[in-house]
């Protein structure tokens, strides 16, 4: 995980800042989304389609869980 050093350096009274906080997740190998992917996450026509899909998926899950 990248750390915003400028933010950290300016954070309240924290003399002798460590390189990383204990337990801090290091550089992640997780893929970062492309600008296009991020844009599509709020693209209204595409998200209307996803809204229908998510609802269908959840309806299936709910139906399956209500059958006992």
């Amino acid at each position: 995980m990248s750390q915003n050093e400028s933010n950290r350096a300016a954070a309240p009274a924290t003399p002798a800042e460590p390189v990383a906080y204990p337990g801090e997740l290091g550089d992640s190998i997780a893929p970062a989304p492309t600008p296009g992917t991020v844009r599509m996450r709020t693209n209204v026509p595409y998200q209307l389609y996803r809204f229908a899909r998510v609802n269908m998926r959840m309806a299936k899950m709910i139906r399956r869980s209500h059958t006992h």
Partner: peptide
């Protein structure tokens, strides 16, 4: 894990686990 880390990376949120 990968999916969530990706969001933390994208939004520049530091994680202590």
């Amino acid at each position: 894990q990968l999916w969530t880390e990706s969001l933390f990376r994208e939004r520049d949120v530091t994680a202590i686990v």
